[in-house]
Simulated scan of single mutants.
Amino acid sequence: MTRSQKNDTTRLDASPRCGAKTRSGKPCRAPAVAGKARCRMHGGAVGSGAPKGNKNALKHGYYSAEAKAMRKHIRDLIRATHEITDDM
């Protein structure tokens, strides 16, 4: 390799940068992973990010759609029962 080939950093300088905010408040200057907007340290690495299907946002328990529908059904049954007993 010639000396000019060794020191040719134009491709590296032209590559897109990560841009994530560092602890100092300045944008990250590391090159972004190919096809991603962040570097390997800020979420561009393989396996980083939310899982497929986004299980992180899965609602369960009291506020799930299933539980809300069940409570609405029970309220409707109680209301119907009150209407029937009031007519007697």
Rank of each mutant, 00 (worst) to 15 (best):
D87Q: 08
D13P: 00
R29E: 10
S48R: 06
R29I: 07
Q5D: 15
A14D: 12
E66D: 14
G35D: 01
G47E: 02
Y62M: 12
E83H: 00
D13L: 11
A50C: 09
S64K: 04
P16W: 02
A50F: 13
T2F: 05
M1Q: 08
M1K: 10
G25W: 09
K6H: 05
D8T: 03
H73N: 12
G47K: 01
H82F: 09
Q5F: 08
R23Y: 11
Q5C: 08
P31G: 05
P51G: 07
N7A: 15
Y63H: 15
S4Q: 11
S64F: 04
D13N: 13
L58T: 07
D87G: 06
A69L: 09
A45N: 10
G49P: 03
Q5G: 14
S24L: 13
A67Y: 06
Q5M: 12
G43Y: 00
N56D: 10
G35S: 03
N54R: 03
R79K: 15
N54E: 10
M41C: 03
A67T: 13
R71H: 09
K55C: 03
C28N: 05
R75D: 15
G44T: 01
A69H: 05
S15M: 04
V46S: 11
K72E: 14
E83D: 11
K52F: 04
K59R: 15
V33S: 01
C18F: 00
D86N: 12
G47A: 02
A37D: 11
C39S: 01
R71I: 12
D76H: 12
S64I: 03
N54W: 05
K55M: 02
D8A: 10
A45F: 01
G53F: 02
V46T: 10
N7Q: 12
M1F: 08
A34L: 06
A45S: 13
M88F: 02
P51S: 06
I78Q: 15
I74C: 06
K55S: 11
E83A: 07
S4G: 12
N56S: 06
H82Y: 09
L77S: 04
L58I: 05
T85P: 00
E66G: 14
V33P: 02
D76Q: 15
L58E: 07
L77G: 10
T9V: 10
R40F: 03
N56Y: 11
N7Y: 15
Y63M: 09
L12V: 12
A30D: 10
A14L: 06
K68Y: 09
I74W: 10
R11Q: 13
S4V: 12
K6G: 05
H73W: 13
G61V: 07
C39G: 01
A14W: 08
C28W: 06
L58A: 09
P31D: 08
M88R: 11
